[in-house]
Amino acid sequence: MSHDTTVAHRHVQITNSLGLHLRPADKFVKLALRYRSEIRVHYNGNQFNGKSILDLITVAAECGTRLELEACGPDAVEAVDALSDLVSAQFYENENGDTIQSHPNTEPGR
């Protein structure tokens, strides 16, 4: 669609104790939807649509899992930056899955 298309990749590791469960997946999708790029999550040889929560929850990545994020579009680099920040901040939840702080950098391309 865009003539200014880039592709960005980033490896991330899930480090929150409950893994990529429902609420982190929701936060991920919410953030992914802010970008125009297509977002894909690669795991175990499968790819998942990073803007679809129905797709993303079936990743069921446990704590310690490594995933590859891929974005394709005009803001691909910003998108993978922001999403990998979210993952490494453990989706802002504690070990019981409670949100411990609101997401501080909701602006794309912080």
């Binding site: 929701d26 919410k30 649509n49 679809s52 929560i53």
Partner: peptide, 13 residues
């Protein structure tokens, strides 16, 4: 959890 439900209902796929 219910917020995630709302997002599922609005899921693009």
């Amino acid at each position: 959890i219910l917020a995630a439900h709302a997002r599922m209902i609005g899921d693009i796929t």
